[in-house]
Structures are given as structure tokens and as C-alpha cells.
Amino acid sequence: MTNSQQAPGDGAPPSRGKIAERLLPGGEEPDPRFTLANERTFLAWIRTSLALLAGGIAIEAFTSDLFLEPVRKGLAIVLLLLGMLLSAGAALRWLRVERSMRHKAPLPLPLIVPLLAGAGAVAAAVVLVFVLWR
């Protein structure tokens, strides 16, 4: 049964809640497997985000004898910032994909993939240069 179908004996479609109706307006409830797959993808991004947050802490806490303080702090902030952006990006992507599925539109391109790839490459390059230079 899709959301657009009415429950037996009921005059109006079932309410989805104010937040859902505001952020996911219109369309039809997609196949539940797709909704759940979208949620799993969101959770995978959140795990990546938490790994980056933990990595930022690890850099700050455990590498005091390896990196100079400005480098250590800079790397930690880059990783923490990336973790934050990834959390926000994961939620936005979940919303955009859910909206597309409700309206049977093509799925949007994942904008957080190039962000993560670019920032990861820059962070790895900084560490590599610093380790070789040291």
C-alpha cells in the first residue's frame, strides 16, 4: 500500500508528520526497500564521518612527538571539519535521494564523494610531505 492510497474507512491519507510533510512534500511513498537502502547509505556516510572525527582526535592526542604543534592542530581541524561536512552532506543527500524517489525522478549525483576524495588526497599529501621532509 502506498501513502497516496487511503486507509479503509478513512477520508484522508495518513499523516506523515509535520517535518516529513515539510521536507519531503508531495510524491508517493517509494518501495520500502529503497527507503531502507537510502537509510543504510546515510548510516555508512555517518560511520565515515565518525571515523574522521575519531581520526582528528587521534592526530591531536597521539602524535605530539611526530608533528609540530601547528601541523598537528591543522590536520586535526581539517579532519574534524571534514567529519562535520560529511555529517551535514549525508543528511542532505538522504533528503535529496528520498525526494527524488518520491517523485520518481533520477537520483542526484553524490556531491560529498568529490569533497571526501579531494580532502582525503590533500590531507594524505600534507602528511606525506611532512614525513618525507622531516
Partner: peptide, 14 residues
């Protein structure tokens, strides 16, 4: 065959 998108949980987690 009907699952509501759990938008509140997604927003809180993010």
C-alpha cells in the same frame, strides 16, 4: 510494503 522515511532520526544523527 509501506515504510515511512524516518526523517527525525536522520536529522538527529546528522
Amino acid at each position: 510494503e509501506h515504510v515511512d522515511a524516518d526523517i527525525t532520526a536522520v536529522l538527529w544523527t546528522a
